[in-house]
Design a protein around this nucleic acid. Structure first.
Lengths: 153, 153
DNA sequence: GATAGATAGTACGGTTCCCTTACTACCTGC
DNA sequence: GCAGGTAGTAAGGGAACCGTACTATCTATC
């Protein structure tokens, strides 16, 4: 393969740019998560569904709350909820105290999917830890969390 | 804030799911990269332009080669090249030896942008290293690269 | 207790970014 | 010199989001 432009020769071995590296790590993780969820019978789950699974309260949440927590617009989150509803992961019921609002609640199946997703992500992280060392994975987490926290402000 | 469903209480402090963590790290990095490129006069650059800047050869590359290296379709990469051409970062010239093919080459400005992007990403990584420790950042890189490598196969 | 303004959710249309299918132009091997 | 392969483009579509605008409902104030 020919030489690439703009690459000072002394720049180290691989040097995948950080954004590409993070994207690939995400893609790899998500591919396994979705594949295994599917294998366990939890079909049709995609990335942005996490906005519901991550942020929903045990007693149910309102659409507006989930949108705010996840950073998605109300409309986008509404779409996500409709999709999850079609797959039987959540249900929408009108709030008896406020007829404008609807409470979004996980169904039994939704809770099982949530638990399964957490377990699978835990599995993945544990496998990485076995392969590369638990402290290194824990430290990677801490570094990333710190980076995100400090840069967001 | 109310309790969240499906979260065993013993599960540690933050526990952002890995895909969300990687996505946020990518977004934070990319936001700074694009902001600073823009400040330096390199406007209109977005994520997928990296497919060209990362993989183009010093002597120019063919569209098909860039598509294959980046994993994008030829059409998507053609769009990206057209956009970069409009902004003056690359030029397309017909290959004299093969009139089907066109050679895509960085312009002077394109090379400057490429160098600037590498410098800015280096800055970011260096700042993280100062803040969190150089070995930790280097190790994060190695961990991520290893994870991506091993999971892709 | 009427009404102005805020809030919950939905509808509609648009953008971005990628894909697949289908095509044209050109090249190469038999 | 033609069959089949390859480079690139065109056209259309879908996923995943956004903003604007709307309806229904609630709440605070007079």
């Amino acid at each position: 393969m020919a030489t690439r432009a703009g690459r000072p020769a002394d720049e180290g071995v691989s040097e995948i740019p950080l954004p590409a590296l993070f994207t690939q790590a995400k893609d790899v993780t998500l591919a396994e998560l979705h594949r295994r969820l599917d294998e366990e019978g939890f079909e049709g789950i995609r990335y942005s569904h996490g906005a519901v699974f991550r942020f929903i309260d045990a007693e149910g949440s309102r659409l507006t709350a989930l949108a705010a927590r996840s950073g998605l617009s109300k409309q986008a989150l509404g779409e996500v909820v409709t999709e999850l509803e079609r797959h039987g992961y959540v249900e929408r019921t009108t709030d008896p105290d406020d007829h404008r609002a609807k409470t979004i609640r996980l169904t039994e199946r939704g809770m099982q999917a949530q638990v399964a997703a957490a377990r699978i992500l835990g599995d993945i992280e544990r496998r990485w830890a076995q392969h590369l060392g638990p402290d290194r994975i824990a430290d990677m987490r801490m570094v990333l969390e710190e980076v995100v926290r400090s840069e967001k402000s």
